[in-house]
Design a protein around this nucleic acid. Sequence first.
DNA 1: ACACAGTTACTGCGCTACGCAGATAATTTG
DNA 2: CAAATTATCTGCGTAGCGCAGTAACTGTGT
Lengths: 149, 149
Amino acid sequence: MLIDDLQQESRRYLASYVMFNQAVADHLKLHPTDVQCLNLLTAEPGPFTTGRIAELTGLTSGSATRLVDRLEKAGYVVRHRDKTDRRRVRVEPVPEAMRDLTELWSELSQGWRAMFADYTEDERALLYRHMQRTVELSRQQIARLRGKA
Amino acid sequence: MLIDDLQQESRRYLASYVMFNQAVADHLKLHPTDVQCLNLLTAEPGPFTTGRIAELTGLTSGSATRLVDRLEKAGYVVRHRDKTDRRRVRVEPVPEAMRDLTELWSELSQGWRAMFADYTEDERALLYRHMQRTVELSRQQIARLRGKA
DNA sequence: ACACAGTTACTGCGCTACGCAGATAATTTG
DNA sequence: CAAATTATCTGCGTAGCGCAGTAACTGTGT
């Protein structure tokens, strides 16, 4: 297996993920950014503030405020002023409101589960570790891209 | 390795790819959709028409026209009327204009190359096959999501 | 040969996400 | 306690998107 082939396939893979995210958003009648944010809220370790959401999504602080406005209005999250630092606003997901999203995910998950079930224990361990490494690498690349602009 | 853990990690993985795409777009001062389209133009088999681009990106026909407008204006693609069916417009990437994009990719690729080089031949083959399967699965899921809406 | 349905791409319009710059409130620093 | 810093929010202009309607072309049936 040539590394170049892997790279080429990575690119299709990336494109396909972006399309997938788009399709999920359209289906839920939400903006892709909103879906991305909700995903982050369930996938990343909390707690979350408006600023942290700006960081995670790559939006400016103003746009992050509007993003939280939309999610709050739609009932996906609630705002709480932080008691110890009253400038901060803690943003907390509302589990019941996430139901549509999690239901859709678990519905879609079935296909993925089946795919993962096909692998041996060792293979799954490899995929898992690869994903972790990729997430970490992406994080670095993003920091670099934003850094020198 | 539990399948649930893999699923959870998949979600972070997806989110991280979306962020990566966003960062690449910001860096090139292009819209994420435009970057996605250019990726598709190099990753998918041609030929491309405005309609096919609408399909690939999930945009409506009108928005796809505007997308091609932007890319043409920026010099990334050229339009050619199809000789055999003059309703169609063939959209062709301009290799020289893609240079920024491919340069950026090969720069970023270095990190990925290093990561891939760490694996054994067999492991790379597994990852490659997994990506192919995922792309195919995404394609199906997207079709399903768009289908019943 | 010709009318008509279907296809492909484009245009006008309204909505809304986004970045930017400035405002406001709270905290930290000297 | 004043000044600098931090976290969030607001006003405004720009631009991408979907929708609905339009124009150009193709294919089909009579």
